[in-house]
Design a protein around this nucleic acid. Structure first.
Lengths: 235, 235
DNA sequence: TAGCCACCTGTCCATATGGCTAGGTAGCGA
DNA sequence: TCGCTACCTAGCCATATGGACAGGTGGCTA
């Protein structure tokens, strides 16, 4: 099995970058990951095996943004899960795309979450690899590929995206703040009544939010809701 | 118990090593982690910054055992979560302790799960660090410390252990196979009736297992049960 | 302004769940 | 053999939950 897929993007263009830098120039990469070990590992692989240059490392969203701003790298290799809020990582993608269109984004995630994969790509990430799946040479190839304007999807990610795009709305359906809040309390084992009391709602409203969340997550029992939300990295 | 705990930010001194090996010999380490990036990172940190030798890398439980057998390292640095079954990682600890008592075990976990921390230490691991928390220099120091017979607990792990040992039974209470099986189906959103049908039990029995699991996990609603089980890395 | 959305509340009812008591089997080690 | 554990089953009953219908608000945008 061709361990990872590359999808040539017909519509997205690289004609702009054609003459932008000399073909022999080293690919310049900024790595954003909260984990030292991972950063060191990536740097080692990229620099020693792939002949690239890691020009900066970042451990927070702000630092990542600053680093891209300062170094204008070809590729930002990022673990969306910096800090405690993955949503910020997604916002960061949008911002990078908007402010630094020449920097490609390759997401290097800890785990495979359908919701996050889809969202990341929707917001402009050029690729999505999973840490535990990726092999050493794939990392360098992946970085090169996104730099060249391709979309790189790791093992298992491709089919996920296909499913996501296939469904009418995919993961475009976000859980609202309230829904998420309720789910978090459900995960703690509170009953509807307790949740209602906790966040000053009527029990009816709690059930209402839960019903809506059920439909969005396509889960019909609260245990499943919690499980899916957890798997999607929302808790 | 006569082990002295060492929290990672306190400073170290090794007054314990009794000249078992020449003081200048390089510490020999086997690294077991399914993730290439992490392996490369650890190797780089340990070899370049801490002057140690990574004599082998492993990506499976079997390979880890073989590597320890073959190389007789001073320290086995392992992510319990190789394969899909963390329990096997715990068993591996026991086996290493039994068969290769000269090899110390330092667990390098992805996440902080109380149940796993306690179990790992109970089965003979000499330390437990969390990947995202650990700093580059702490990794080398930690390896050195366990080699010297100390117990190394990363940030946040210490208090967890204290709590675990404080409670009468701690996490000594395992979920039985049946309980786990039922919980997995609960997580998929099945009702007791459906679960009963799925694994050929009566609904009563399903409820029985769930009741027992509730008590062990100290959770009173199925949503909480799956949340805890997930957090404990059991699903 | 109409339409959409997130948000909030209520009522109804069948079913699921949590918590309990009270049995049974088989295997394993002291 | 006794005691322990994992395992299996049954029944009872109060409460929680899932799913439905039927309304309401305020804010935003076409």
């Amino acid at each position: 099995m061709g361990v990872f897929f590359r999808i040539m993007n017909a519509d997205v263009r690289s004609d702009v970058s054609l003459g932008r830098r000399s073909p022999n120039a080293k690919t310049r990469v900024v790595v954003a990951d909260r984990n030292v070990i991972t950063r060191v590992g990536i740097r080692s692989i990229l620099e020693r095996n792939a002949g690239m240059a890691v020009v900066a490392e970042a451990t927070t969203y702000e630092a990542a943004l600053d680093a891209v701003d300062e170094h204008g790298p070809d590729v930002l290799l990022i673990d969306l899960d910096l800090g405690d809020d993955t949503t910020r990582g997604l916002k960061l993608c949008e911002e990078i795309v908007e402010r630094f269109p020449n920097t490609k984004i390759l997401v290097l995630a800890q785990s495979l979450s359908e919701m996050i994969v889809i969202e990341a790509l929707r917001r402009g990430a050029n690729g999505y690899l999973v840490k535990d799946e990726v092999k050493a040479d794939e990392l360098g190839k992946g970085v090169k590929a996104v730099q060249d304007g391709e979309t790189v999807l790791g093992k298992g990610v491709g089919s996920m995206v296909a499913r996501g795009l296939g469904s009418t709305r995919g993961a475009a359906e976000h859980l609202t703040d309230r829904e998420l809040a309720v789910i978090k309390l459900v995960a703690k084992g509170l009953s509807n009544k307790q949740i209602a009391h906790e966040i000053f709602l009527s029990e009816s409203t709690v059930k209402f939010h839960l019903q809506n969340a059920s439909k969005k997550l396509n889960a019909h029992r609260r245990a499943e809701i919690v499980h899916r939300a957890t798997a999607a990295g929302l808790l």
